[in-house]
């Protein structure tokens, strides 16, 4: 492939990547893929892609002037390198973006028990208002505190997506979230059970905000918080679908 053509393709692909990532950044979907902690660094990377694209286009212009003297073949121009860069663009554009949901449970597992995150921050969570605690907070409290009767009757308000499991009764469902440390690849699901007479009317994977009071139950030998719901409302996918430990 002639150098100029190769360079032009490089420039186009860099621009493509820049536009794709920049659009993700603008519509706030970067956190569907990575922990919000890494967003600033990624933005920096996206800007750098633009700088590189600009450099390449300037180079193409320079080559155009140069080529009038003699056309030369670019030895390093292996077109295969170019084709590969199309893959992320194709995957990103053709497959509709969606945060991880219960479809990933088969392989990633639903972690309803176990020491979720090693850092014991339960004393901090203790002081936050009960209605501001998220699913992870509640699970941590029930994991680390010996006496959970103190939480029984507290008001809870949590957001998550709906998941049904055989371990639960017909009027129960799980409110689940994925916990992501760095990117979607390391995400694992957590969930707490909720009781709601109309549970069967809910749609799997739909996002809901569940309000009610906490009690303690045992599921498969694990002590878990259960929300006896007074209201279950549908909501949009939150800006940050994952929880970050």
């Amino acid at each position: 492939m002639p150098t100029r053509m190769y360079r032009s393709f490089q420039g186009l692909l860099l621009t493509g990547l820049f536009v794709f990532f920049a659009s993700k950044a603008v519509n706030g979907q970067l956190t569907w893929y990575i922990n919000s902690r890494f967003v600033p660094l990624t933005l920096f990377g996206i800007l750098f892609l633009a700088v590189l694209a600009q450099t390449i286009f300037t180079e193409v212009k320079r080559l155009r002037a140069h080529d009038e003297e003699h056309v030369h073949e670019h030895e390093h121009a292996t077109p295969a390198n170019l084709w590969f860069m199309i893959i992320p663009l194709l995957i990103g554009v053709l497959i509709p973006a969606r945060p991880l949901n219960s479809s990933a449970f088969d392989t990633k597992g639903l972690n309803t028990s176990a020491p979720l995150v090693s850092a014991d921050t339960s004393s901090l969570i203790f002081e936050t208002e009960s209605e501001k605690r998220n699913i992870l907070d509640w699970l941590k409290l029930f994991n680390y505190e010996d006496d959970v009767t103190q939480f029984v009757g507290q008001k809870a308000s949590v957001i998550g997506f709906v998941y049904f499991d055989e371990a639960l009764g017909a009027d129960q469902f799980y409110v689940s979230r994925f916990v992501v440390s760095c990117c979607a690849a390391d995400g694992f699901a957590i969930a707490i059970p909720a009781q709601w007479p109309d549970a069967a009317s809910l749609k799997k994977d739909s996002w809901v905000i569940v309000k009610g009071s906490i009690s303690s139950v045992e599921i498969d030998g694990n002590r878990m918080p259960l929300i006896t719901a007074t209201s279950v409302e549908s909501v949009d996918v939150p800006d940050q679908p994952y929880l970050f430990p």
Partner: peptide
């Protein structure tokens, strides 16, 4: 289709996260 969605999310997760570091190394 469900699987493909999960695949896309995980793939882009790894890719997006690695991009700034790859750029840093190549620079």
């Amino acid at each position: 289709w469900d699987r493909l969605n999960v695949f896309a999310t995980i793939f882009l997760g790894i890719f997006v996260e690695a991009i700034p570091y790859l750029l840093l190394g190549t620079f």
